[in-house]
Structures are given as structure tokens and as C-alpha cells.
């Protein structure tokens, strides 16, 4: 009896086993696309409902926003004196971030290596940096304006000072945590200082350095919008502030969306650069 039962059941099981995983895989794959879309739709629906009910103040609902931003999207790449498109506003901000962030990367990695490899530097600088790094980016702006007396260099300085701390601290930790094994190999082989630096110290600390760089690029992008609101001129931060002052609420929403997308792209760029350059263990 049992044997016949088994033979009857077995093919049915096989069939089920054949289709279910496929179905599951399909659901899982479509889930990564469908579920986020559902979440966005729910969010937009709520927003539309709230604005229709008049609960969002002067902020328009999503349908209104889509209508209002048409000219802005048409003129996305405009570059005339009185009508600078959002693309160019973003480009101006990105340029400031690029300068400030590059400076922070160079200075941060250099100081971090110094602190990580020479104990007196660590002892001398660490307490100072632990205090300085907690200062909010915008608190530096008056100091920068006082010292540099120009808006643009001051904004760049704010980016620099915001981005530099995580780079310094992560690099120093990375250098300090070079495994003793690697140091032993270097001393037994009597590697020269430059060889040790480039072949052992830097690669060993690379994953820490990239962690610092990734945190830093996020912070830099956070700071630029706030800094530009205060310094003015061309730039996405001032564009947002200016739109608010002229009651162009839909423009703000488009600009904020762009800021988010650019920030996401910056973060991913550093992440993939790190994956490319840091050897996997």
C-alpha cells in the first residue's frame, strides 16, 4: 500500500516543486520593482488627499506640482542671465562640493595617515578634532566669511570643514588597525618606507578610507544646500530659498527632488569607486 501511495504522490510533488520556486522567484524579483512603486503611489495619494483637504498650507498637492513645474522642466538646461535652469543650479552646487570635497579628501587622508602612524600626532590632535567635528557646518560660515570675506570661497570652506572630519578619523583608524601580521611581513622583508606605504599601509587602510569618503560626500552635499541659502548666487540651495521667497512652491519640490537624486548618485559613486579600488578580503 505504502509503495503505491508513494508512487502516486511523488510526481505531484515534483510538479509542485517545479513551479513554486519559479513563481516565488518571479514574485521576489517583481517585488523589488512593484513594492517601491506601491509605496510611492500610497505616499503621493496621501499627499494629494491632505492637500485636497486643505491641510498642507501653501504647499500644493502632487498634481498641482506636476502642472506648475512644466516651464521649469522645459527650461531645465536654460542658461540665460535671468533664467538659469535647475541643471545649471545643480552644476554650480556640484562644482563647489567638488572643490571642497577634493580638498577635504587630500587633507583628510594625509592628516589621517599622520595621526594613524605617529602616536604624538594622534595624542596632540585627536582631542581638538573630537570637539571640532561636532560643530554644525553652518556655524563655520560666519567664521569663513569673516576670514575670506567672499561668499563663494566661504561656501567651499564650509564643505571642506564638514567633509574633512570623517575622512581624517576613518583614515587614522584604518592605518592604526593595519594587522600586525602585515607589519611583521614588512619588517622581515625589510621593505623600504615608500614600498611599505604604497604596498601595505594604503591598501590595508583603503576600506576604512573609503568609508570615511562615503560619509563625507553625504555630509558635504547636506551642507552645500544650507550654505548656499545664506551665501546666495547661483546654486541649488539659493534657488530653493529664492523660490520660497517668490512663493514658487512647486519649484521647491522639484529642486528638493533633484537634490535627493544627486545626493544618492554621489553616495553610490563613492561606494562603487571603493568597491572597484579596495581589494576584497
Amino acid at each position: 500500500m505504502t509503495t503505491t501511495n508513494k508512487t502516486v504522490i511523488a510526481p505531484a510533488r515534483d510538479e509542485a516543486a517545479g513551479s513554486t520556486p519559479q513563481l516565488k522567484a518571479l514574485l521576489e524579483r517583481s517585488g523589488t520593482v512593484v513594492l517601491p512603486l506601491v509605496a510611492v503611489a500610497v505616499f503621493l495619494g496621501l499627499w494629494q488627499a491632505l492637500s485636497a483637504a486643505g491641510l498642507t498650507g501653501t504647499l500644493p498637492g502632487p498634481l498641482q506640482v506636476v502642472q506648475d513645474v512644466q516651464p521649469l522642466i522645459v527650461g531645465f538646461f536654460n542658461n540665460s542671465e535671468n533664467d538659469v535652469g535647475v541643471a545649471w543650479q545643480l552644476a554650480a552646487s556640484l562644482q563647489r562640493v567638488a572643490i571642497g570635497y577634493s580638498l577635504a579628501a587630500v587633507v583628510g587622508v594625509a592628516v589621517g595617515i599622520l595621526m594613524g602612524s605617529m602616536r604624538p600626532f594622534q595624542l596632540a590632535l585627536d582631542p581638538i578634532f573630537q570637539v571640532l567635528r561636532t560643530i554644525p557646518p553652518l556655524a563655520w560660515l560666519p567664521i569663513a566669511l569673516a576670514a575670506l570675506s567672499q561668499a563663494n570661497p566661504s561656501a567651499i570652506f564650509v564643505i571642506f570643514i564638514t567633509a574633512v572630519w570623517p575622512i581624517i578619523i576613518n583614515t587614522a583608524v584604518g592605518v592604526r588597525s593595519t594587522p600586525q601580521d602585515y607589519r611583521n611581513v614588512a619588517s622581515v622583508l625589510k621593505l623600504s618606507k615608500p614600498t611599505y606605504f604604497f604596498e601595505i599601509l594604503l591598501p590595508s587602510a583603503a576600506s576604512y578610507i573609503f568609508t570615511g569618503l562615503r560619509i563625507a560626500v553625504g555630509l558635504a552635499w547636506l551642507a552645500i544646500v544650507a550654505a548656499e541659502m545664506l551665501t546666495g548666487g547661483v546654486g541649488i540651495g539659493f534657488f530653493i530659498w529664492d523660490s520660497y521667497n517668490s512663493s514658487r512652491m512647486a519649484d521647491i519640490i522639484l529642486a528638493v527632488l533633484c537634490v535627493g537624486v544627486v545626493g544618492f548618485v554621489l553616495d553610490r559613486t563613492i561606494y562603487y569607486a571603493g568597491r572597484l579600488l579596495v581589494a576584497s578580503e
Partner: peptide
């Protein structure tokens, strides 16, 4: 002082993982 005339084969290999 350490030197390559007394080369060590380390307990846990001590290979550089990025090379």
C-alpha cells in the same frame, strides 16, 4: 633586527589579500 636572512613562514600565512 628582523631581516630576510631569517625568513618566517607565519602561523596564519600573513599573505597580503590585495595581491
Amino acid at each position: 633586527q628582523p631581516g630576510p636572512d631569517r625568513m618566517v613562514v607565519f602561523q596564519n600565512y600573513a599573505l597580503l589579500p590585495w595581491l
